[in-house]
Every structure is written in C-alpha cells, then in structure tokens.
Nucleic acid binder design. Structure first.
Lengths: 226, 226
DNA sequence: TGCAAATGTGAAGACTTTGTTACCAAACAC
DNA sequence: GTGTTTGGTAACAAAGTCTTCACATTTGCA
C-alpha cells in the first residue's frame, strides 16, 4: 500500500514544517503549499490526494475560499486549522463541507490522531445502501438490484444512477450533473449525458420511468407515489 | 419554522453524542434513546418526529425489531446504522421499509448529507418553496402543485409563474416581465407574453384568475382575500 | 354609440431540445 | 498482440416549445 498523500496549506513555513514532520513520522506523504492559489494548482494536478489540511488565516485567498473551490469538484476530506474556535467559524466550515476543525494552538499528536480517524472512516467507507422504490443501490458492492434481481451497470451508469438516487426529487441541470458525476476537467459535450440516461433507462426496465425529462432544464429522478 | 426532531437510537453513548453533535450543528433537534424499548416509548409519546436513526446491533431489542414496531403505525423515514451490510441485512431492511443504510464507521458529514436529502424529499422543506394561496411552487423540484395535485408546466411557463409569485401584488409591465423572464438579448414581440399568460391561466384552472390584466399596463399576480 | 387601442385566442410553423442509433477511440481483460 | 467493453461524439429523427400572425373580443374614451 502506497503512503497516503496529504496536502498541507499554510502561509507560515514554520507551521507547515511542524505538521509535516509529525505526519511524515506517521508514514504519510506530505505536500506543502504556501498559499491558496498554489494549493489549488497542486490539488488539481496531483492524483490521489487523500486529505487536505487548510489554514484559515492566509493572505489573499483564505482557507474558506480554497475549501469552497475544492468542494466544487471534490469530496476529499478537509481539515481546517483556525486561530480561534468561535462557533461562527465552525458553522461556516460545516456548510462548506469541512470534515474536522482544529484550533491553534494544537498538539501535533492530536492533529495526527484526528487525521487518522478521518482517513479511517472515509477509507473504510462504503457499505452504504441507497433505496429508491424498488431500486436498491449498494455503493460498496457497486451493484444495483431491481426488486431483488441484480442488473449490470457500467461504471459511469452506476455513478450517474447513484447521483440521481442521492438527489431524488431534485431537478438537475446537465451542467450540475456534469460537475458532479464527471471530472471537473471534463469539458465535452453535455449531450453525452443523454446517451447515458438512455442506456440507464433501458437497463432499468419499467423503472426507467423514474428518470424524468424536464424539458429545457435537465433530468429528475423521482419514485412515483403509490 | 421550528427545528425538525430526529430520534437517535443507539446503546453506545459515544456514538449518540457524535451523531447528535453534528445534527445539532445542522440545526436539528436531537432526541436520544439508549435502547429499543425506550425509543418506542419516546417515539409514540413525542409529536412530529421527522426521522429516526436506528442502530441495528443493540442488546435486548435490536434495530429490526424497533423498525418493525414503528412501521406498524408510522411511515416516518428510518435510517439504519449497520456494522456491515451483509446481503441478508439488506433484504430484511428492504422488506421492513428502511429508507437508507449507513454502515459504520461513517463520516458524520455523510450522515448529515443523507439525513438532509431524505428530509428534503419527504418534507419538501429546506428547499425554496414558494406558496401563493393554493399554488405551491417547488423550485428545486421544478414542479407546481395546485391544492396538492401537480400540474405540468413548460419551462417558460414555470419561469413566468415563478416571477409572478415572487412579485405578488405588484403590477408588472410587459417590458419588465421580458427583462426578467426572458434573456436580455430577446428582441421579439412583447405579445408573446400574452400567449404564455393565456396558457398559464388555462393550466391553473380556477386559479388562473390570480393573474389579473391591468389594462394599458401589464399584469398582476394576486391571491384573492378569503 | 362608435372608434381606436389593447388584450384574448387559436393555429401554424420555426425553432430548440431531446431520443436514438451508429461509430470511433481509449481502456481493459485475456 | 487480439478481442471486448466502455465512454464520447456526431448525425439524424422525434418530440416539445416558443413565437408569430391573424382575427376576435374587450376596454377606455370622446
């Protein structure tokens, strides 16, 4: 197993070094970034970053901004480092999808413990099951069953259905679907969604009706009322 | 709007606290129960419990049993927490009317996201829903209902109604409507509004009267006083 | 009342969006 | 390497929507 990559973003080099030393000792690979813009560059260029540690207080682009940008395209766990732990900050971070929140000064041991806890639960993640009417979607087994009988879906089809089921009853524009199911750097034709929707519908059989077309807008997944 | 109540049932107090903390931050009211019997007592004594989170593995009365008892009388959404999801478990839960499974260990963020997704679709709350008399306009679902029955609107019709409802009681000139509902670069005939208003009125049935003509000026959307 | 202007109405066709199929390139397994 | 699967693209067909136009009707006003 390769070492997991952790991106540490802080404008103070002293702080970066501190964090890096302890994480390296715990056998993680640490990548440093000295400001927000640099962090985003590195994040989107590097594959498989397992976790991001972000300082809130940074000149130019602060931690919240970096967090928001990353969250636009990725669900990577994010830990925020902040000077004061006001409740305000916590709430803001929580809205942005921050996973953990550590206030300075902190003991490096605690930092490492938190990081390990997060990686444990995000990596061991997965036996989750989503249910939508007769459709059962098992994310860990990467398998879908309709009324008990399993059906074969390709990777993209599965991802698409997963996104639909997670957003039942919500009208989804093609743009939104592209941003969430496809990689952030995909700039192809949005019509490719149509093709996948078509295949999904046919594979879902009767249940293909669950995917409704909203003309001029996009698609909506909805389980009909009984 | 009152905070929604969520019942968390788990024999481990540490787990209850974890879940409670995150849900409380997301502005839910959390009620704890340390075993199945207590959970049932609380559930049937307390009004308006919006969702139940159930641990499967509990001494004495397990999660399935609690689920079955609740389902006997209520359709409240139920989320099960399982150690691992064997196929057996899935099927059992599926028959019992479980809405979702989350397996331990889980990221609290994911738990909250799932809870919100379920509540959104069962309660239609937290979405931007506009209400005007008997007309309910759900912007996120892109759907309109009149006295509970959904009606089909085209894209432009929906946008137009949305604009009307957002500006209840305000006399709107055609020019203003064009500028807000149509793209700014639209230079067609303003009479096209009339056609859409006509279609909207007919689709709204009795409620078409809500759209009043202001002669020489434009239109006004108004819900009549009772 | 009669007239001009504004609005209501219905239908046609131009236009946009979506469904569908076929095909190619890349990834993958063997 | 070959053969298979998958994802993306293009092209055409089908469906749905928007706009326009003509004409009917209503309104305000002299």
């Amino acid at each position: 197993m390769d070492r997991l990559k952790i991106l540490v973003v802080d404008d103070e080099s002293r702080m970066r070094k501190l964090v890096k030393d302890f994480l390296t000792k715990s056998d993680y690979e640490v990548i440093e970034a000295e400001n927000g813009a640099r962090a985003l560059d590195i994040f989107f260029e590097t594959k498989d970053i397992a976790l991001v540690i972000l300082d809130v207080m940074m000149p130019e682009m602060d931690g919240w901004e970096v967090c928001r940008e990353i969250r636009e395209y990725s669900k990577v766990p994010i830990v925020m480092l902040t000077a004061r732990s006001s409740e305000q900050d916590e709430l803001q971070g929580f809205d942005l999808g921050v996973d953990e929140y550590i206030s300075k000064p902190f003991s490096p041991k605690i930092l490492v413990a938190r990081v390990e806890a997060i990686l444990r639960r995000t990596n061991a993640q997965g036996d989750d099951v989503l249910i939508a009417g007769d459709i059962v979607l098992d994310k860990s087994a990467h398998q879908v069953t309709i009324s008990g009988t399993p059906i074969d879906l390709s990777f993209k089809e599965f991802e698409l259905l997963n996104y639909f089921v997670m957003n039942q009853g919500v009208a989804l524009s093609r743009e939104r679907i592209l941003n969430n199911v496809w990689n952030y750097d995909y700039f192809g034709d949005a019509r490719t969604i149509d093709t996948h929707v078509k295949k999904l519908r046919s594979k879902l059989g009767d249940k293909g009706d669950y995917i409704k077309t909203i003309w001029g807008m996009g698609y909506k997944f909805e389980v009909p009322r009984e």
